[in-house]
């Protein structure tokens, strides 16, 4: 587990600009597959959300040209990438640099510390925000492992390749796309 950092890196502006013209439909499709897989791999995380699982969240990576809209229901989760400003009404919005949001998923950052420092902003239904934060934190998710898992029998080699790719991406962007593991 990485130590707490006071500085959250931002995606290089040129890279963010370069992503702007890309279509979002393939990303939405990939996110849907990822979330459906996560439902099977981490049912306790969705259960921990309790009544808040039916809420609609906007996750806003402020250094990317789009937001992610999701409803993390265990039985019928929804997720979609949408251009910023075109998102539907939501119960809650969580906004911050991509590195901070990914770091929260991986447990590399403390949500309250990012909130104190204003690196993270939250609006809307705070019960939903708090439940999502706690459920994600308990799930010990690794995005590389989750992405590899959707490939079924190829998951292990895919995860090895994914970790190499995540390392390269981290050197370019400063963002840790894989969780630093420190199992007991």
């Amino acid at each position: 587990m990485s130590s707490q950092s006071a500085t959250v890196p931002e995606l290089p502006a040129a890279l963010s600009l370069g992503l702007r013209p890309l279509p979002l439909a393939p990303l939405s499709m990939a996110l849907k597959i990822l979330v459906r897989s996560a439902v099977h791999r981490h049912p306790a995380m969705f259960a921990r959300l309790g009544d808040q699982a039916g809420k609609r969240f906007v996750i806003d990576p402020t250094d990317l040209p789009f937001v992610v809209v999701m409803t993390p229901r265990l039985d019928d989760p929804e997720i979609e990438a949408v251009r910023r400003g075109e998102e539907p009404a939501a119960d809650a919005r969580i906004a911050g640099p991509l590195a901070g949001l990914v770091g929260l998923v991986h447990g590399n950052y403390d949500g309250d510390a990012l909130f104190f420092s204003r690196d993270l902003s939250v609006e809307g239904d705070m019960s939903a925000v708090v439940a999502l934060r706690n459920a994600l934190d308990d799930a010990e998710i690794d995005l590389v492992a989750e992405a590899a898992a959707v490939l079924g029998p190829l998951a292990n080699p895919a995860e090895r390749v994914g970790r190499i790719a995540a390392g390269v991406a981290e050197r370019i962007t400063g963002i840790a796309f894989a969780r630093t593991r420190s199992e007991p």
């Binding site: 587990m1 990485s2 130590s3 707490q4 929260l104 447990g107 590399n108 950052y109 403390d110 949500g111 309250d112 510390a113 934060r133 934190d137 308990d138 010990e140």
Partner: peptide, 10 residues
């Protein structure tokens, strides 16, 4: 107890 495991670890 309301903080993350990152906080707890640090």
């Amino acid at each position: 107890r309301q903080r993350s495991r990152s906080y707890t670890d640090a």
